[in-house]
Design a protein around this nucleic acid. Structure first.
Lengths: 143, 143
DNA sequence: CTAAGTGCAAAATGTTTGCATACTT
DNA sequence: AAGTATGCAAACATTTTGCACTTAG
């Protein structure tokens, strides 16, 4: 079944390790590219895109629509298997990702399936909003 | 406070009415553009973007990350003030969007806020998964 | 050796900007 | 008349593709 053969390349490792190292941040393809360049381990941006795609397909990394200006963001996922049982909340402001294990939310998935015939993909779904820190900060900063 | 003066233009009306007419569909800027062209009431795409932006700022329309290929999607909102705004489910396979009004899901938002100090942005959050049709099809097609 | 991966430059998208012209009020 | 809005073309940003070259297994 696993018809895809894959080589382990220097570039691939660099990209993955970059994401691992920054698993709490918004990281776009470009950021990865720049980061590696600054480390003196430059990787072509095409390669960055291609490897990120691969990682996403492998389920090692998730991809989601980033903030306003930028393009897609990628984040390393610790335990791909366990991600099936939890949700990802992303703070639209600071970019922090919160891995939320919560039985209550599991009911939601069941509800969607039972009442709306929709089988939610917890892996791909990302809940956007504001974490408390940012919400507070915004409130104080009036704006 | 309302320092913005605004003219009511033919194009602006066309764009808004297009979104109103299609409030149940994915509608990208390009779709609006094409739709109007086909109606014989062509509007420059720049104008489409500018008007959509304006509508979003006015809160008449929401903007959210669309499916895989396409760019941002826009949708007319009936009652901007109401927190009973619905959720968007997107089928990862056929791309169909389901607008889901469901009180149960509103509890979810409350739950996230109360128990996890996370204020969810329903406008921006999109739930990915498979609609029944596609789920069935996949099952049958084995694969 | 061979298939897979790399990286450049170029193309394809999606969106924004500059600017002269046209329209609203 | 004065300030907005329009629409074209060009600029941008992000991501993808074509292709010759390199590398992992």
């Amino acid at each position: 079944m696993d018809s895809k053969s894959t080589y382990t390349t220097k570039q691939g490792k660099l990209i993955l390790s970059c994401l691992k190292k920054h698993k709490k941040e918004h990281f776009t393809a470009e950021k990865v590219h720049v980061y590696l360049k600054e480390q003196g381990t430059s990787v072509g941006q095409t390669t960055v895109y291609r490897n990120l795609d691969k990682l996403v397909k492998e389920g090692v990394v998730i991809k989601y629509a980033g903030g306003e200006g930028q393009g897609a963001c990628y984040q390393y996922i610790e335990h791909p298997e366990s991600c099936a049982t939890h949700y990802h909340l992303i703070c639209a402001d600071c970019g922090r990702m919160i891995h939320l294990h919560c039985e209550y939310l599991d009911e939601v998935t069941a509800h969607l399936l039972e009442y709306h015939q929709f089988s939610m993909d917890k892996f791909k779904t990302v809940i956007y909003g504001l974490c408390r820190r940012c919400e507070d900060r915004m409130r104080n900063a009036n704006k």
